[in-house]
Design a protein around this nucleic acid. Structure first.
Length: 593
DNA sequence: GCCGTTTTCGGCCCGACTGTTTTCAGTCG
């Protein structure tokens, strides 16, 4: 057991500890359901909107699905000490370095256990050496091909090419692949083709791409897919399923199905895995076994065993099981199936509900184009308002605006608004600022300057490594300022580049709810900050949300769809989001408590 | 280890593909 904890552990830390236990148990050879329970519990904790520390403090851990006495005890120990007795015991029985070996593609717990017991392999380096010395093929059930795959897998791991890819990178690639495949084939070769998987669920990062297609000639489509210029290597090629690695490292699965299977197949390949398992268990209770091909009667329900049902649409499948169609963004097994059963699913926000944006820059700070050009781009997108919020002074790298420059901006904004009014354009350019929250929590501009602005967005850009208490208090000071309307990108993370600050999101969101401070979902695909789980929590606590792209150039406004994706994953309705409202109603909501 | 519309025991989602076999276990999603 480790000594005292140095910081509070997050839900994700807890989930990773449970996954470690699961993998060690699996390698050790414990029964499938003993370790599966820990992995299931890890998924539940990872998807939790509440802070697991609060649940543990309230003593209600075992109320969580999949968390019983055993798992709860491990969680409690981990939160208190950063470790658990069970994990310690397992580490004394199984070398913990074996966990890394299970990350080699093609190697699972069973093979890793045999490599360890029969060849004494415990590390990636030893694995590589054994494969190179052809010692692995001497084991029964292992061969030359396995050795080859192990070496390739180790090389991949060493290059860290298995990291998840931001949705903003993956989505254009998937759409590009689909277009390229269509162009490579005759017009009638593909009847339908859709991206599925976490991409269709708008998850902030994706592990790989899943594309589903209907075609009268699977072999032709599979061959064309393997020959696309984007493809670096074909990893697996069957009659209905092909996996390739694209240049850049992202992997992509293509599956082809018959039209009558489309509904179940699209549902299955969209996931999430947890949602699918829940759905299959629900089907089983009704006497049906669900697969990507359809439903087959088990004989334990009303239909005779073996009877099959097929569904050309997802809607028909969900309806057959007594459910409303569930938007893909909600399919994470966070309670959506129960809501669909009672016809109580929320009416999710859509892109078209957004009437304007409340965070954007011009060339007065680090934006690339003029105030007028940004506003014209907003008008061209059908927006009815747009907030000019250049960086304030206090952020060294961009210069930034002060009281004097804001007064100049006001004149420009007034003149532009007057011009649009004369022309009959239904659009308001709002003047604000992205106000720097300084390292000590003071604000970079005085109250009298802030009072003259339409909207103030306050954000943190510096001293991002402050400890949890310091950065939380710093942020709370800004939230309590009556002129701060919106808290911008609350954790300052950049996906894959910079971790979130250690900020105590629960306290921050509570303070936002108390003061009436709106919380931003920054739609830039490298930020997506708030994330889906925190956005859900914010609304549960009574916060209102603003979704903006933080545009620095004209095309950045295209990123809005990613912010809407986060909002939909957080089950947000138009009412939860302030920039779904006409400008005056929106501004009225910014009055603080 | 967890759980209950078969509730305190006896189950626990389903199928494609690969590699090594010769009927299947392991891995993956």
């Amino acid at each position: 057991m480790n000594a005292k904890p140095t910081h509070t552990f997050t839900n994700h830390d807890v989930a990773e500890h449970l996954r470690l236990i699961a993998t060690l148990k699996e390698i050790k050879g414990e029964g499938r359901f003993h370790w599966l329970a820990f992995r299931n519990a890890a998924d539940v904790i990872d998807n939790l909107p509440e802070d697991v520390n609060d649940i543990a403090a309230a003593g209600t851990l075992t109320d969580l699905p999949g968390v019983g006495k055993g798992v709860a005890e491990v969680i409690e120990q981990f939160l208190a000490t950063g470790d658990s007795e069970l994990a310690g015991k397992l580490r004394s029985q199984v070398p913990v370095t074996l966990v890394e070996l299970t990350e080699v593609p093609g190697l699972g717990a069973k093979k890793v256990a045999r490599l360890w017991r029969e060849l004494g392999i415990t590390t990636l380096a030893e694995l590589k050496a054994a494969a190179e010395a052809h010692r692995i093929r001497e084991l029964k059930g292992f061969g030359a091909k396995t050795e080859e795959n192990i070496l390739k897998g180790v090389a991949l791991l060493e290059q860290r090419r298995h990291a998840r890819t931001p949705l903003g990178v993956a989505r254009p690639q998937a759409l590009g692949l689909i277009q390229a495949l269509r162009e490579a084939l005759p017009a009638d070769a593909i009847t339908a083709i859709e991206p599925a998987g976490s991409l269709r669920r708008w998850k902030e990062t994706v592990g790989d791409l899943d594309i589903l297609a209907i075609t009268p000639d699977p072999a032709q489509v599979m061959a064309a897919f393997q020959q696309l210029p984007q493809v670096e290597e074909v990893l697996l090629g069957g009659e209905t399923k092909t996996r390739v690695r694209l240049h850049g490292g992202l992997e992509c699965d293509l599956r082809v199905v018959e039209p009558r299977h489309w509904g179940t197949a699209l549902q299955y390949f969209t996931g999430s895995k947890a949602h699918n398992i829940e759905l299959r268990e629900l089907a089983l209770k009704q006497g049906w076994s669900l697969s990507e091909y359809g439903l087959k009667a088990t004989g334990k329900g009303d239909a005779p065993a073996g009877e099959e049902r097929f569904f050309e649409t997802e809607e028909a499948l969900y309806a057959f099981l007594g459910l409303d169609w569930i938007p893909p963004e909600m399919r994470e097994n966070r309670g959506e199936i129960a809501l669909a059963q009672t016809h109580a699913l929320p009416h999710l926000l859509t892109r078209d509900d957004i009437l304007g944006e409340l965070h954007g820059h011009s060339d007065w700070s680090d934006g690339r184009v003029s105030i007028e050009a940004m506003a014209e781009a907003a008008i061209a997108r059908g927006y009815r308002y747009w907030l000019l919020s250049d960086h304030s002074v206090g952020l060294g790298v961009t210069g930034g605006v002060d009281g004097e420059k804001l007064a100049e901006q006001r004149k420009i904004v007034d003149a532009l608004n007057a011009q649009w009014a004369r022309e009959g354009v239904d659009f308001r350019l709002l003047l604000g600022v992205e106000l720097e929250i300084l390292a000590d929590g003071s604000l970079a501009l005085p109250d009298d300057v802030l009072a003259r602005l339409d909207v103030v967005v306050a954000s943190i850009h510096s001293s991002l490594r402050q400890d949890r208490e310091t950065i939380t208090e710093r942020c709370l000071k800004a939230i309590r300022n009556p002129h701060v309307d919106i808290l911008g990108h609350p954790t300052s993370r950049l996906l894959g580049k910079r971790p979130p600050t250690e900020i105590d999101m629960e306290r921050v969101l509570q303070a936002c709810a108390e003061t009436g401070t709106v919380v931003e979902i920054n739609a830039h695909p490298w930020r997506l900050d708030l994330n889906d789980v925190h956005a859900r929590r914010a609304v549960d606590l009574g916060c209102k949300i603003a979704i903006s792209t933080d545009a620095h150039r004209l095309t950045d406004m295209d990123y809005l769809i990613y912010g809407v994706g986060v909002a939909r994953r957080a089950w947000l309705t138009p009412d939860d989001v302030i920039n779904t409202r006409p400008v005056d109603a929106m501004l009225a909501l910014l009055k603080k408590n």
